[in-house]
Nucleic acid binder design. Structure first.
Lengths: 332, 332
DNA sequence: TACGTAACTGTGACCGGTCACAGTCCTGAT
DNA sequence: ATCAGGACTGTGACCGGTCACAGTTACGTA
């Protein structure tokens, strides 16, 4: 197998200079039509493909973005729908001839490596998939001047970093309103961790919408996992049986809650209605199928990518808030 | 923010030449102890980080591997445990200072892009996550001379490409043996698609182990999804009620089968035992918890990475077969 | 003392692009 | 006829590494 053709080979084949070939490749401005077709033809004949590394070196741009997961046991590895975010980002980038580099910063050692790697400019920017407030990685990235976009508002860093998120408060209000509209009054909430935006703001929305009907006794916290939902539900039941609906901040917690209710001899939705959040993969297939708030995963990822590209281009984009949609199924 | 330090800056700071710095970075052979510490000290002082692109250009190596998904609705996006494969690969690479590039080749347009991208040498090799026999991408990659390792034996390409897979036949036999050991005789199988290794070989193992007890009437095929499992189970029940156990080729199909059985008024495992395959995330939390074969996801990914690196280094490694382990829970 | 050799070091060329700049050509206005 | 200026093209330098090779040094041996 002989050497891959370079821009010089193409130039020679087309009878023009390297500069002209480069211009054709990069948009073709200030190139005569003749030269352009000659170059395009030569590219075809030679089977030329631009060398990423060389271009990177010359332009100082990497041509890739990092998809950075910052937690050891991340949602991605529990909730399949979340992987859509990853997939969507990869596709959005592929359309722009860029690539997605997956980085995992679970252990402290990994975090150091990742910080080093990212700061070294091996990627043009970072799609930060983090949720916990305490995350010092956000600071590091900001300090190092690495273009960063967060998925979900990073508590403690509001307004410092561009974000793409769903309207947590409005979403929670909508679900709460729906439950109340169905006649439920003693509605419990299984919230997410209070140091995550989903944990904090969904509870805020719930509380706002409940108004006078809000009862702090009916609030428990989980970590989004199925097991934590089951345990939270158990704690609620232990405290009181005067509950007619449960709003869980994730579908998995809703599933866990339902399992606990079943064991307690309660029927869903007849005795107690249960609603989730995310519209993750299990929502539709769960028995009973879950009523939930759908997160616009595809749009989230594409907006993250375009926002990050804006940041890289030097802009300071406004935070983007996307709407969710209520999906009514059987559980509530 | 001033320019990032280069190898020249380090050389100047250490009072040596670029060549010596380069040698220190790349293992430090043939470098005097004095020079080595001087360079290491200079690297620390200047905060030097090697430029990926420049190195890539000079060495001709990309320093990254592709994680290539070749199906539109891939398992990854349905089964969270599968994401462990991705994560494991990313971590195994990070340890070697390489990166993982995620490529999705769902649509035909994407496939063309990906083939182009990969053949262009933007990555050093490909971890191919494909399953269907018909996949022409395997041929393309092989033809283009791109180092490739498959996860699971690609039917129709056996022995042409290095693979890392679980011992499908032995796994299926073990599960079948277990079910028979529990006294079941009329065991049905919900197999995977016959053009996937998991679909084909798990059925082979099942048939082998059943021996004379094998009844083709008790075999149905699904596509690994929960819904397909439910439908397959419905077809089986329509055909005969003389079934005392079901072996599904995936946990999700097992879950679907259980839902169908429930609707038919049958109890699991009292009336019919149901076993799955994968030990995916839902297996442990499902109600009832699934008896299943655990796939060694972490090892699969790390073996894939090391095998691929061997291929890149010029070796022709033997196919690697990993064992699975029987996990007994409540469903069978 | 001379010399071969192993250990170490420095240098220039090169990887394959991009970019700034200079140069050429052509058109239309003065 | 001259010239300004726009359209296009070619060239050399540069991005930041690696590598082959030539050069230097120190040491053991004849």
């Amino acid at each position: 197998m002989r050497r891959k053709p370079t821009i010089r080979d193409v130039a020679a084949a087309a009878g023009v200079s390297r500069g002209t070939v480069s211009r054709v490749i990069n948009g073709g401005h200030w190139v005569s039509p003749d030269a352009r077709v000659a170059v395009e033809e030569a590219i075809r004949r030679t089977g030329y493909t631009a060398n990423h590394a060389a271009r990177s070196l010359a332009t100082g741009r990497a041509g890739s973005l990092a998809f950075l997961l910052t937690e050891p046991q991340h949602l991605l590895f529990q909730d399949p729908t979340f992987a859509l975010l990853l997939r969507g980002a990869a596709e959005a980038l592929a359309q722009r001839s860029m690539t997605l580099v997956l980085l995992v910063a679970g252990t402290p050692a990994e975090r150091a490596n990742v910080a080093h790697f990212v700061s070294a400019g091996h990627v043009d920017g970072v799609l930060l998939i983090s949720s916990h407030e305490s995350d010092p990685l956000v600071d590091e990235l900001l300090e190092a001047g690495v273009p960063t976009v967060c998925c979900g508002i990073p508590l403690g860093h509001e307004a410092q970093v561009p974000t793409v998120s769903v309207d947590e408060i409005a979403s929670a209000r909508e679900m709460t309103r729906y439950l109340r509209g169905r006649g439920h009054r003693r509605i419990a909430m299984i919230a997410g961790p209070h140091d995550t935006p989903g944990g904090k703001f969904r509870l805020v929305g719930f509380e706002e919408e409940m108004g006078d009907g809000f009862d702090p006794v009916l609030v428990e916290e989980g970590d989004y996992s199925q097991e934590s939902g089951a345990l939270a539900m158990a704690r609620l039941l232990e405290r009181t049986r005067d509950i007619d609906a449960v709003f869980a901040a994730s579908d998995m917690m809703a599933a866990g809650a339902i399992a606990t209710l079943r064991k307690a001899g309660l029927r869903v939705p007849e005795d107690i209605a249960v609603a989730g959040f995310d519209d993750s993969g299990l929502a539709a297939t769960h028995e009973p199928a879950l009523t939930t708030m759908r997160q616009p995963w595809e749009r989230l990822s594409s907006e993250m990518v375009s926002t990050l590209l804006e940041v890289i281009a030097g802009a300071a984009p406004e935070p983007i808030t996307l709407p969710t949609t209520l999906v009514v199924r059987d559980s509530a």
